[in-house]
Write a protein that binds this DNA or RNA. Structure first.
Lengths: 139, 139
DNA sequence: CGGGATCCCGTTGGATACTG
DNA sequence: CAGTATCCAACGGGATCCCG
């Protein structure tokens, strides 16, 4: 039996990533943008409509003001979120998804659904692995 | 299309995340799993068919052996990748996506497509932001 | 309220050397 | 080839204080 899977396998495969010719297939971009600890959670919260700074902070439990500021700034910079300042006293600011940002929520939703659908299976696989590989910590 | 969905959100909206009642909506899981620097790229490579250790290493440019090992181990632990050892000399090992792992590639593909589709827009927004906010570095 | 500025620590991950 | 073992630098991110 030859191990000659040298050719192009699989149906409609993803393009190769990382090669010089294909610096990457675009995944790096999206990952660098929403792959951090908070971005997706903020997007999810904003998917429910415009939110003020403190509202997001309360909704996304565990986030610090610092990280909320940074996260929301980066999303604004990338054009996924629009920041609106109302000249009241004290200042009032709200954030909402742009069209582009909103288009991301569908994908995020799909990922969340996938996660929920496979969560048990994955937990099982994980336990099985840990049982077979004692003391072998990967985390 | 107006952005006036102030109320309880659009169609089949995402559930609130972070609340004590809803510890999270599942996004955290998937993010913790594939949100790191290399996992998705390895999955993409494996989407093209079974690969040996060195093949992945060469394909995913910039990854170190250490990180490839860790990444592939974690994916194996989660049941997304199956590792097969052939008792040859020298040792030969290949990795391939499991059914569960393969089911993720569709989502990853969607993310990549989204990224490619919006890459210009985002780059533009970014440049515009940087132009308006000089010296104000967010990265 | 909506942040900015610092300090500081834990984790991620790169470089390198060694092994079966 | 397919890893394992260390060491170490960079960065993410939490805590705290301060300001308009």
């Amino acid at each position: 039996m030859s191990v000659t899977h040298t050719g192009v396998t699989g149906p409609a495969a993803l393009e190769p990533c990382g090669q010089p010719e294909h610096p990457d297939c675009g995944i790096r971009d999206v990952l660098d943008r929403v792959g951090d600890k908070w971005s997706v959670l903020v997007i999810v919260e904003l998917a429910g409509g415009p939110r003020r700074f403190r509202e997001i902070e309360r909704a996304v439990q565990g986030i610090s003001q610092r990280m909320l500021t940074l996260t929301v700034r980066r999303l604004e910079r990338d054009g996924l979120v629009r920041r609106t300042v109302y000249p009241t006293v004290p200042a009032q600011v709200d954030y909402r998804l742009t069209e582009v940002g909103a288009s991301l929520t569908h994908l995020v939703k799909a990922l969340a659904d996938w996660s929920l659908a496979h969560r048990e299976i994955i937990a099982g696989a994980r336990d099985a692995y840990d049982a077979e590989h004692p003391g072998h910590d990967i985390h």
